[in-house]
């Protein structure tokens, strides 16, 4: 089970994961035994406030943060027990879409060059991958001729779509979307969320969708996980967690959403002219 991919196994399984920064006296345990599973074709929404460890979890899954305890299983394989070749292959199977559409694209490379690099990291001449580039651009509703252009010629929403196309072009088994709409305007956010919804059904994406915005997570996720100070306080189907939160912190979080049913900031001033 640890040496070959298993198609019946969940795409991602995290067991009792701990991540510690620093050592000795200054050690800070950022993840304190997190367990989660994402089945094929499902989206897990991960919510939490700053310092809850949601980005640390994302980075641990893609291998940017080493785990100090626990294990990460991708397609039924323990990442820690992979050979270096398997690990290199695994890296391409898990792709991350970064938050900021402005710093995630190299300003000196054309969109075609950026996508070609995702398609083949070594032989990345855009002319050799013209069809695939055009295909992925059409997936995000951009014309094929934009491949010749540079990132500064695009709006924030278009850049974020390109970053999504770059992650998809690798053909990953798992997509990690880390706050991908928080730098965007409302209307652009709607555009990106619609794109994500469409791709989820058309490409059967498996995704971890991280956000601090409970409205957004509610919109895109099948299941939801609530992190608080590095611990999972609640995990379950979206409707049951939002409709009937078990943990007091989840309740507090949901009641803090402006416009939500439980939101209350006190009485209005009486007699406004």
């Amino acid at each position: 089970m640890t040496t070959t991919p298993n198609s019946a196994a969940p795409v991602l399984e995290v067991r009792d994961l701990e991540v510690t920064f620093g050592s000795g006296h200054a050690a800070a345990k950022v993840l304190k035994g997190v367990s989660a599973t994402i089945e094929r074709g499902k989206t897990l929404g991960i919510v939490g406030e700053s310092g809850s460890g949601k980005s640390t979890l994302a980075k641990a899954v893609v291998g940017l943060n080493p785990a100090s305890a626990g294990s990460i299983w991708i397609n039924g394989m323990d990442v820690a027990r992979m050979s270096s070749g398997q690990r290199r292959a695994m890296r391409r199977e898990v792709q991350m879409i970064p938050q900021d559409p402005y710093s995630s694209l190299n300003p000196r490379r054309t969109i075609g060059q950026t996508l070609a690099e995702a398609i083949d990291p070594v032989k990345s001449n855009p002319r050799d991958h013209r069809e695939k580039i055009a295909y992925w651009l059409s997936t995000i509703r951009l014309d094929a001729d934009v491949a010749e252009r540079y990132p500064h010629e695009f709006s924030g929403g278009q850049r974020q779509r390109i970053a999504i196309a770059r992650a998809l072009a690798v053909g990953p088994k798992l997509i990690i979307a880390d706050e991908i709409t928080s730098a965007l305007d409302l209307s652009v956010q709607a555009e990106i969320l619609n794109l994500i919804s469409r791709l989820r059904t058309e490409l059967d994406l498996t995704m971890a969708f991280i956000s601090h915005d409970l409205d957004v997570v509610h919109h895109v996720s099948d299941e939801i996980m609530v992190l608080f100070h590095g611990e999972v306080v609640e995990i379950g189907y979206v409707d049951s967690v939002y409709g009937n939160p078990k943990h007091p912190y989840t309740r507090k979080l949901i009641d803090s959403v402006p416009g939500g049913p439980g939101f209350d900031i006190g009485e209005r001033r009486a007699a406004v002219a």
């Binding site: 890296r91 898990v94 970064p98 995630s104 190299n106 060059q113 995702a118 990291p121 990345s124 770059r166």
Partner: peptide, 19 residues
């Protein structure tokens, strides 16, 4: 981000420098 993304894509080191 584009550098860490390139690492995740598996781009070899010298190419990260030149690109």
């Amino acid at each position: 981000n584009y550098v860490s993304t390139a690492r995740l894509l598996g781009v070899p080191g010298p190419r990260i420098i030149t690109r």
